[in-house]
């Protein structure tokens, strides 16, 4: 991969990665940092990365960086005994995207990541498995459970409305 291809990759994937990470961790600054770190790593290995596989490389790097970040945050959270989700919950929704947003928050980290990769980027089970270091069957199961969870949450909110 050369310099031009690297810069094209920035144009093509930075936004998508940012959205993926932002939806996963809900912190704009941290999402920005994760994206920057991922591209930094890509630049360091630019000569070893195939341009055709750069998207996968970037998302894999971003995913693992994010997981590390989440683990660190969780340790901090456990230490402080604070559950942010308790404070962020609200039952006043104006549209479906907000409901989905809320439902997404309630998924596990892995479920959220796989379903975001699936829906946002249209990755196949195999590709998601590679990115997340899971087996294809595990990915299928996580997506299945995530869909069920989202459906139940939306159903319950709609029934209330």
């Amino acid at each position: 991969m050369n310099l031009d291809e690297y810069n094209i990759s920035v144009d093509q994937h930075a936004d998508g990665m940012f959205r993926f990470i932002l939806k996963s961790i809900r912190d704009e600054d941290k999402a920005r940092d994760v994206v920057q770190d991922s591209f930094e790593k890509l630049w360091r290995n630019v000569e070893n990365v195939n341009y055709l596989k750069v998207k996968s490389y970037l998302y894999t790097t971003a995913y693992h960086t994010m997981i590390d970040l989440i683990r660190r945050e969780k340790r901090k959270e456990d230490f402080e005994n604070v559950d942010v989700r308790d404070y962020s919950h609200s039952e006043h929704y104006s549209d479906l995207s907000e409901i989905l947003d809320e439902a997404l928050k309630r998924l596990s980290d892995v479920q959220r990541s796989v379903i975001l990769l699936r829906d946002y980027e249209g990755y196949s089970y195999t590709e998601i498995a590679k990115i997340t270091d899971l087996t294809e069957s595990q990915v299928k199961v996580y997506i299945y459970r995530a869909r069920m969870h989202l459906k139940n949450y939306i159903g319950s909110i709609e029934s209330i409305v």
Partner: peptide, 11 residues
């Protein structure tokens, strides 16, 4: 349950 990316969010 299909999620749609918010294209207004850009890096």
């Amino acid at each position: 349950t299909i999620l749609h990316a918010d294209n207004s969010l850009v890096f």
